[in-house]
Design a protein around this nucleic acid. Structure first.
Lengths: 211, 211
DNA sequence: ACCGTATGGAAGTGAAGATCGGCATCGCGA
DNA sequence: TCGCGATGCCGATCTTCACTTCCATACGGT
């Protein structure tokens, strides 16, 4: 005969106060979204990872989308803060350049990999997500281009495009650096920093003889 | 009384030979995927855009994924070809740098916007897609880093990271240039080219006085 | 001991990918 | 010109899957 299963059989964590539970759910959700992306992640998975059942999720968030947006907000804000802080670290143009690059590498190197959500979201088709991520890169680009305009004489549209280039370079190279995993962070920042500051032409070149 | 609807009532395109139909379906699929991304696009939408019914789609492609992969293959190949061609355009290190940047801008500027599928795919959680796009960037980075190693004395891992940075810079700035839409292509390439070649430090700087 | 709140098992709902059987059209040979 | 097999095509349906919700149950403070 099948014996009755009581609640005590299921491994169940302690009852948590609302705010702690919410924080824990966000953490679980992040972990799942980072692993599998938005679409491939189910509310079931998230609940399971958090050690609770699905209804609990819905008592804290109206739906899957809002749960995701909460994470997007959190991490875009963190990134923008990081970049702005880096830009205020030094008065020297070159130091600032290196520092802002390091900001992206630091962000990408974080243990919980929030960059997957900011840089590799698979939910860009939704306006709410697109706008938030757009806002974040906009904020980074604005901050950087403002400093560029102070330090050089480039007109605004040009400064903006340059800033976009720097952001893209940092972001993409940081991600590939992490994937690769063989280069120490400081060295990687030095390499990309030198590229950003001196350009390819500034790497000790072995000049080809003119014809 | 309701009159009988015959096939002639429904706006129906002419019957097409198999290969032409397939090409047309690919075109329709691309148009839809580019507009809405993979997940938000339905087979229904694609069939409708092509002016056929769903079963026709399945007579040409085993499923939605394969349809998408066909497009990914097509466009990644095109991008790699474009970059490799650019690298063979000139023997001058600087010219090559500019040319490879222009390759990305050209790719992004294409009318049918294939870059949405290569650079902004929302299906990276699927291994088959990740591998193909990974292969494409790998190929670009390889080609560029090989040239960098010929022109400079950078060791291989460094050259690879630098190449990654250049690719990221080109790709991201090209996309934002397109979004912005106010800067002529040639000027944008000049700006990013100068950044890549000279670095931020090489832009006519208004130096801050040392303390 | 009791009541409100937190929690889980299980069922509802809807969207979208995939399929089935039949109809129309085309090319070809008598 | 007519018949006929082959091919292209469609309406309607099936099936699966994941978000969401309902109701009974267990816990914890008073």
């Amino acid at each position: 005969m099948a014996r009755e299963f009581t609640a005590a059989d299921t491994t169940r964590g302690p009852r948590l106060p609302r705010l702690e539970r919410r924080a824990q759910l966000l953490e679980a959700a992040q972990s799942v979204f980072v692993d599998k992306g938005y679409h491939a992640s189910g509310m079931e998975d998230i609940a399971e990872r958090a050690g609770v059942s699905k209804p609990v999720l819905y008592q804290h968030f109206p739906g899957k989308l809002e749960l995701y947006l909460a994470l997007v907000d959190k991490h875009t804000a963190a990134l923008v803060e990081l970049v702005e802080a880096a830009l205020n670290e030094s008065d020297d143009h070159k130091d600032r350049t290196y520092a802002s690059i390091r900001a992206f590498f630091d962000f990408v190197a974080r243990e919980d990999e929030p960059f997957r959500i900011v840089f590799e979201s698979d939910l860009n088709e939704v306006a709410a997500v697109r706008e938030r991520i757009g806002w974040a890169t906009e904020a980074c680009v604005d901050a950087i281009s403002r400093r560029i305009m102070l330090d050089t004489e480039l007109p605004q549209p040009v400064a903006r495009l340059v800033a976009q280039g720097l952001v893209g370079m940092s972001q993409v190279s940081a991600r590939s650096w992490l994937r690769d995993g063989t280069i120490p962070l400081d060295l990687a920042v030095e390499i990309i920093g030198r590229l950003a500051w001196r350009g390819v032409g500034g790497q000790r070149a072995r000049f080809v003889a003119p014809a």
